[in-house]
Amino acid sequence: MSMRRIINNLEEIISSFFVSITVSLVILNVILRYVFNMGIYWSEEAATISFVWSVFIGAGACYKKKMHIGIDLLTQLASVKVQGIIHLLVNLALVGINGYITYLSIVFVRASVGKPTAVLGISSAYMSAAVLAGFAIMTFHSIRFFIAGVKVLITGEVNKEVEEANIISK
């Protein structure tokens, strides 16, 4: 795989890696239980931590692909020009929301360093850092979409470009 393809699919690759670990751990645990009548007591927590990472990095991937569910039926009623402005404002708001959550995650992760997880007793920052990573990725993409929206407004509006700035994908 070329470097470029890896970078373009980075969220997908990381998220898939974690979900694979989750599936493998749970399958392994069932097999161990029936074949050897034993279980890995930490498998549940490890599978869960892996899942948390998969979810938040995957949420970044979905953001990139505009897969988060919403409706734009009302905004569609507006003229193309007004739609461009709405997309710009929406993306600006999303930069704010994602940026704020990213900031809060930094505060939260730093405070949760000394809080051990229930079973493994490792720092719960290993888990909460997933939220930080996921929202940092989403902040990055929302800034990208916002810039795309600015370009649409500056360079004159074509339908296709308006779509590019629309957070609700078709």
């Binding site: 009548n37 279980g39 549940e44 927590e45 079973v119 493994l120 007793g121």
Partner: peptide, 27 residues
């Protein structure tokens, strides 16, 4: 020995019930 016992997901419980001889199963 060999008895699968549900415990809360807590290090103290898992270690104690394991020490008592059971297979702690956090659920």
């Amino acid at each position: 020995n060999g008895v699968r016992l549900r415990v809360p997901g807590s290090q103290l419980f898992i270690e104690t019930l394991n020490a008592m001889g059971a297979n702690s199963t956090p659920l």
